[in-house]
Amino acid sequence: MTARPADRSTVWLRRALVAVGVLAAAYGVVGVLTDPSVSLPNYFRYTLTVLFGHDLLVLPLAIVLGAVLTRWLPGWARPVVQGALFVTAALTVVALPLVLGFGRVGDEPSALPRDYPRGFLLCLAAIWLATAILLVLRAIRRRPSDSTIRERP
């Protein structure tokens, strides 16, 4: 760490950011607490569910799953698969409520009009097809460089 004295403008910028942030957040908190259309018990239950659901369930599960699924892959293939798994996970978050389709109402055929399971599978197919092509390209590119290494000594 550099022991340079912080210049005054940075100090004031930090103070201003914290002060503005406290005001904005306080405005939002007062709004949540006083707006009768925000039913507080439901609001807090939902917020705590997404917070702890993410921090203690979804994220650790994703990390463990990613570690397990890429554990036995060779080093040259692992980064590509890790990237593809990340893209798959992010897409799943967006697609899941649509795929489950609980928002569909009988009398509004134009709301959620598509076949979302099919759409989701198409996206997954595109992601993993691209991944497979990348892996093949990497495998092909790897072979010549291996032989040059072997020739060197």
């Binding site: 950011l17 406290v22 939002g28 709004g31």
Partner: peptide, 14 residues
């Protein structure tokens, strides 16, 4: 309202 909490908490964090 939560948008205000988010930008406020983000400004504090930065």
């Amino acid at each position: 309202w939560t948008a205000w909490i988010l930008v406020g908490a983000l400004a504090i964090h930065i």
